[in-house]
Design a protein around this nucleic acid. Structure first.
Lengths: 183, 183
DNA sequence: CCTCACCCTTACGTAGACGTTAGATTGCGC
DNA sequence: GCGCAATCTAACGTCTACGTAAGGGTGAGG
């Protein structure tokens, strides 16, 4: 229980940060290159030494990154926070940024919810396909029974699948090829 | 009214598809390279000629793309649809794919809604900053008055901003530099 | 026949967020 | 003082969804 986690002062080395956050060393290097993170100091040999709060920082980066912020945008946030004299001007910039992101986020939620609906419809449609392969119907599959799935119209997600290229240059597994493909 | 839209047969040229879908010619080329789209034929000179349904196809691609599908994933969808003998097996693959995407989507919605909340909290916090720059308080800005914003705890979005690097090597606009930065 | 917009292929460029060597140090247990 | 993991810097590789020439055919109106 003595040989790990950079035993010593309370300063952490880059590997500790990496383990604590799930990020790679390279990623943390990158964050530093972009000005998102800076080691509190360096060891005499040049090793980066971070205070524990750096872990928080990286988690913050991860949070924002997972939510559509680019690293550049995070730079903007930091610039807004520390720039402009730390005054009300900076706060205004942040508010603007946040409001913009709030719009983006709401839009994203709308789109994803819509997508959720589409997916459910698609799945419902595919459920009705189960019966298509019963002995009563020829095993040609679901493609041929598109008119009577008991749904008024095809889900948007399946609408693009009709009349298709198929896997490039795959003659349709029946052995013959449509004339215009022969050449 | 006679000299546009590739007058002639009902086959469309690539530019028509592009105009009809808002995509660029290059993009459509790419979709073909990836096996997502194939011209019905070629003109004697080599021009791609599409049937009108290709427009539907491209719109479908656009829809899925706008919702987190990568072009590769669309390939998988097409492969699942046309591969596996077009039978129930293919439908199973599609169902699996859709279910996975449904999970992803729901997760995305959760995360974005959470983010929405965070942003709102962040904005609320920043609102309380307005008063920080009044003549009663020194114009040092909001950073120094972090303890009394009337909120129990800081919004997560602002939690990563404390104890920071600041814009790389920018001495803090007052003309002097902290000792450890002088070197 | 001419022209000029449209199209062809080939191939390199871009941006974001790292991954991946590679060669050279450092640091800590033993 | 050895050894080996951890770190260093520098720089090129990767994946995605195209953008952007470069250099040269095509085709339909005039």
């Amino acid at each position: 229980m003595s040989h790990h986690a950079s035993t010593g002062s309370q300063l952490l080395r880059i590997g500790d940060i990496a383990r604590a956050t799930g990020k790679t060393v390279r990623a943390i290097h990158l964050y530093e290159e972009l000005g998102l993170l800076k080691p509190a100091s360096r060891s005499s040999g040049g090793f980066r030494l971070y205070e524990p709060s750096a872990v928080e920082r990286v988690r913050w980066i991860d949070l924002l990154h997972g939510l559509g912020f680019s690293l550049q945008e995070m730079r903007e946030v930091l610039k807004a926070w520390w720039g402009a004299g730390l005054g009300p001007e900076a706060m205004d910039q942040l508010r603007t940024l946040f409001k913009r992101k709030l719009e983006d986020t709401r839009e994203a939620v709308r789109r994803h919810r819509q997508f959720e609906v589409e997916l459910q419809e698609g799945l419902a449609y595919l459920e009705t396909c189960r019966g298509c392969a019963t002995p009563q119907a020829p095993p040609r599959g679901c493609v041929t029974c598109t008119q009577d799935h008991g749904m008024e119209q095809e889900p948007a997600l399946l609408a693009g699948l009709k009349s298709l290229p198929g896997p490039a240059r795959r003659p349709a597994r029946s052995g013959f090829v449509p004339v215009e493909d022969v050449e």
